[in-house]
């Protein structure tokens, strides 16, 4: 990452090779279509390149930084309604998707991680899992979720807190 911060495009290419897949996967999960996910991934990596000097190792891994930027970009896009229409129009499963087929060591680790987090999410009470997914992957605000689920905003925020706390504990136990 130090070489990226010095403006080395080859080092940046390595960052893209390592994190481009997870970034694109997250964007696709959020906007639900390939074109929108490509736009977000592209904008996010250009932003990463242009703000590379802001990365601080003590604040987290490169992957966390990259995925955080992708998440913010996707939320911006969703809230600008740029992809809501496309997401509604997209028939999940009919659209061309290219699943990562190559089972490299890295991919095996990724799939293990995915299974672990998914099973921890599935263990949460349904109402807590729902508000977390609507917020994080759907890009909806707490007031929008409260309106959708016909419940007070305070209840939504409380369920987010309880759900994340349980998820944290489950993942800590899994790691131990």
């Amino acid at each position: 990452m130090q070489r990226v911060q010095q403006g080395d495009p080859r080092a940046f290419e390595l960052v893209y090779d390592r994190h481009g897949g997870p970034a694109f996967s997250l964007a696709y999960r959020m906007v639900g279509n390939r074109a929108g996910a490509e736009d977000i991934t592209q904008e996010a990596f250009l932003s990463i390149w242009r703000s590379r000097e802001r990365y601080r190792r003590d604040r987290g891994s490169v992957r966390t930084w990259v995925l955080g930027i992708v998440h913010h970009r996707a939320i911006d896009a969703l809230r600008r309604n740029l992809v809501h229409d496309r997401r509604r129009a997209s028939a999940e499963g009919l659209e061309e998707r290219e699943e990562a087929a190559e089972l490299t060591d890295v991919e095996v680790v990724r799939r293990d991680e995915a299974r672990t987090v998914r099973s921890a999410l599935e263990e949460l009470p349904v109402e807590q899992c729902r508000v977390i997914e609507l917020a994080y992957f759907g890009g909806f605000t707490h007031t929008e979720i409260a309106s959708m689920l016909a419940m007070p905003v305070g209840t939504v925020k409380g369920r987010m807190r309880l759900g994340l706390d349980k998820l944290r504990k489950a993942l800590s136990e899994e790691a131990a």
Binding site: P9, F12, E13, Y16, D17, G20, G21, P22, A23, F24, S25, L26, Y28, R29, R34, A37, E38, T41, Q42, F45, L46, G60, T64, L67, G68, V70, H71, R97, E98, E99, A100, A101, E107, R110, R111, E113, A114, T116, V117, R118, A120, L121, I132, Y136, F137, R161, L164, D165, L167, R168, L171, S172
Partner: peptide
């Protein structure tokens, strides 16, 4: 709570980005 949120993107299905995305970005 940060670690729980940072784990969420790891739950998604792994997909390959299109190759021309890398080319145009670089």
């Amino acid at each position: 709570l940060r670690h729980a949120v940072e784990a969420l993107p790891r739950s998604v299905q792994s997909l390959n980005p299109p190759t021309d995305l890398k080319r145009s970005l670089l």
